[in-house]
Design a protein around this nucleic acid. Structure first.
Lengths: 249, 249
DNA sequence: ACAAAAGTGTTGGAGGTACACCCATGT
DNA sequence: ACATGGGTGTACCTCCAACACTTTTGT
């Protein structure tokens, strides 16, 4: 009995909720067209090719199946239980990814690809329900001490937009005043001189991500380290994105 | 070119430092006896057998090479860079483990197994220096918000002993008074009626780990969840340990 | 008695929540 | 002018570091 190696990805995007007025977390799933669990929904994934590293495999697979280009990509966990897949032994190295709302909007949705609200999924193929649950837990956790929220917004953004991201992921409203101070204290954003116009009422200031301050989550595996060091594994935030702008002046 | 799957483990134990009077973090390494990097020191590891899950593979390998029985075992990361091993593509799923000092003392040390201070390692085989660095980072991080320190001490322990663990891992002294209050507030320990005798000066109270409170790190992958849930992956704290006692009365 | 660790009390600062309030702009 | 989100001020609470102080034992 041979054991095969696969790479899958949990992809997160924020979309307007069907019930609440806040945005909520959604993930795209693909329908199984092969034998184990045919017809069931599953995480996008596939075998690891011999000449690509793990993060590349995740990014490629994600692009091929959903057409998406993620803003953030990080390894989640390696699942290797004996009975994950009936008949055959599969070890899955799972990544999780964040895509911006605009990117998510233009995602190919069809008969075999569909978005689901992350906290009310149907029964999925394999152990994918557990995997998504764990990924969601990581996302929510990391939102509190890291700055991944920026991966959900554009290059410039208002604090209200950034707050909306936090609220969507955390699932509860945040005090605008306190949110502002917390973010400003963290130095993770820098104010631009521009303001967002076209809104009703007072135009909010636009901010930009502060590259100078590094996140320092992931420790020695983070991008900051790896550049100044020897061999280095994979695990990278993918190539930046053609950016849209929602500002003038 | 085929890609093979291996499991390795970073094993941590606390031992008296050679320089400082505090204990420090040590890890056992094994000498390579095969072709890539022959003679170099490396993490214990080996191929994944087809009928064992990932955590079992880590525990088995760890036991076979070092004779140790870990108190705690958790997955660290999957390393899958293309050039990790010259000639052949290897994806390594790495675990990290904690063993108690007494256990570590009776570890087989010999020509091909030796303990090293974790923060001053020689150049290791493969990307193992980076791996250890990352594992150390995780250990130190996790020490602050989790209760893994208990894996280093016996079943009953004084707060001074527990503090010694924190100090060793963190590499700095902690205020005994504040440490006591922090631990007591966390409810992670319960006082026993016993005291440790045989010491000079006032005999300290012995404490026991509080099983009732769960750690809730690891989220959906933690033991608490998995028992009440469906298929479930691997990733477990291994079987408990024949315990020694250092108390009387 | 006394030395030293065990254990308690007290203070001050940092950070986070709740909430009152002012500011600026499109309508 | 006014409604409303943008943005500021402030009081309070909790948690944590620092450190003075009391208690308890073996010698």
């Amino acid at each position: 009995m041979t054991t095969s190696l696969a790479v899958s990805t949990v992809i997160f995007a924020l979309r307007p909720s069907e019930t609440s007025d806040l945005k909520t977390v959604w993930i795209p799933l693909v329908r199984r067209i092969r034998d184990p669990y045919v017809g069931k929904w599953a995480l996008p994934g596939g075998p690891l090719l011999s000449e690509e590293d793990l993060a590349s495999a995740a990014a490629r697979n994600l692009g091929e199946t959903t057409g998406l280009d993620p803003q953030y990509l990080e390894q989640l966990y390696a699942f290797g239980g004996l009975n994950r897949s009936p008949g055959e032994r599969v070890v899955s190295i799972v990544y999780w990814a964040l895509v911006r709302s605009e990117e998510a909007a233009r995602a190919s949705e069809g008969e075999n690809v569909r978005w689901f609200a992350a906290d009310s999924l149907p029964p999925l193929a394999f152990d994918h329900n557990l995997i998504v649950e764990y990924a969601l837990w990581r996302l929510r956790n990391k939102m509190e001490y890291s700055r991944i929220a920026h991966a959900f917004v554009g290059e410039t953004f208002t604090l209200a937009q950034l707050r909306e991201v936090h609220e969507a992921v955390l699932g509860r409203a945040l005090d605008p005043a306190n949110f502002r101070r917390t973010i400003e204290a963290s130095q993770s954003v820098v104010a631009t001189e521009q303001r967002l116009s076209g809104t009703k009422y007072r135009p909010p200031r636009l901010y930009r991500y502060n590259d100078a301050i590094d996140l320092a989550d992931q420790g020695p595996l983070g991008p900051a380290y790896r550049s100044s060091r020897a061999p280095s594994p994979q695990q990278i935030t993918p190539n930046p994105h053609p950016q849209e702008r929602s500002t003038r002046q």
